[in-house]
Design a protein around this nucleic acid. Structure first.
Lengths: 152, 152
DNA sequence: CCCCATTCGTTGCCTCTGCAACCAATAGCA
DNA sequence: TGCTATTGGTTGCAGAGGCAACGAATGGGG
């Protein structure tokens, strides 16, 4: 077998490289880990969520989310509020400072995504999106229950 | 921004899922880590390499390779032989036991790859391959020098 | 109403791995 | 030949994250 031609290998190389490119922004410039970055973005778009909703498809382990949220709370970027209807879970929301970071970092991240995609025609981008969806769906069937490997 | 539509995120999810699917084979069944698996495969195809050649494009950090090789040597799957022409580096090769594992695991891994790709037409597979190449090339430009995040 | 199963979230433990410092060997150059 | 720069590889250290066990809260029978 030729590793360099093996799809899972190539996907991992590509994913790793894009993660590195992104990390230059959210890690080096804002001190965010990948999980923290994902929490910020999710709360940025949904306003108010629980920790469980943060990993809807098992993309992040719940302990990973827990620690990311704890770190963000410590930095004053995220605020917790108990859910009185179900005191097992807590509502999460960005603080003004957290939102400020989101507002700053999201456009930069999107720009990186755009620069990545800029080598593809808009037709190719559509195609890629569809292919990724198909493969993801299939990979979900082949992977154990819900697991993932994570990273960026 | 919508995380679920963000290309780097989707690539990471997909790569993570495929890694999990593969790990079922090489990790659970053969006790190989991702780096160890890559070393085995590389030596399986090239017969004899140095540790440095194992990470040609900076996909794995050299310390990662070093530890993977050390572990494989300890298990008697890889053998080192000093390069007398340049005693900084060492030639690596699979032992018979190492090759046996390679012969066993490679077809299974390829089968997983096939099953992943089975949801795409052969035309789509070609297209995907080309798109991945384009994106990887571009990502290499955007990522810092040579870094990566690794995994599977 | 009680008991068991389930769910949300946290934490201890352990492994993995990136980074940087380091050693040994080599190469380049005067 | 000597002196410095570079390269292959290893290792100490620290951070990150998966796993599994746990505690707290809830839900679903009987």
């Amino acid at each position: 077998m030729v590793l360099e031609e093996f799809l899972p290998y190539r996907l991992n190389v590509l994913a790793g490289l894009t993660s590195s490119a992104l990390a230059q922004i959210y890690a080096e410039r804002y001190g965010l880990s990948i999980p923290a970055w994902r929490v910020i973005v999710t709360l940025g778009q949904y306003e108010c969520r629980t920790a469980r909703d943060m990993a809807p498809d098992g993309v992040m382990h719940k302990s990973t989310v827990s620690r990311a949220v704890a770190a963000l709370e410590k930095r004053g970027l995220v605020k917790r509020r108990p859910n009185l209807d179900d005191r097992r879970e807590e509502w999460l929301a960005l603080t003004p400072q957290g939102r400020a970071i989101y507002e700053a970092v999201a456009p930069e991240a999107l720009a990186v995504g755009e620069r990545l995609l800029s080598v593809l025609t808009s037709q190719e981008q559509k195609t890629l999106s569809a292919l990724i969806d198909k493969l993801t769906q299939q990979a979900r069937l082949l992977a154990p229950q819900d697991a993932e490997g994570d990273e960026a």
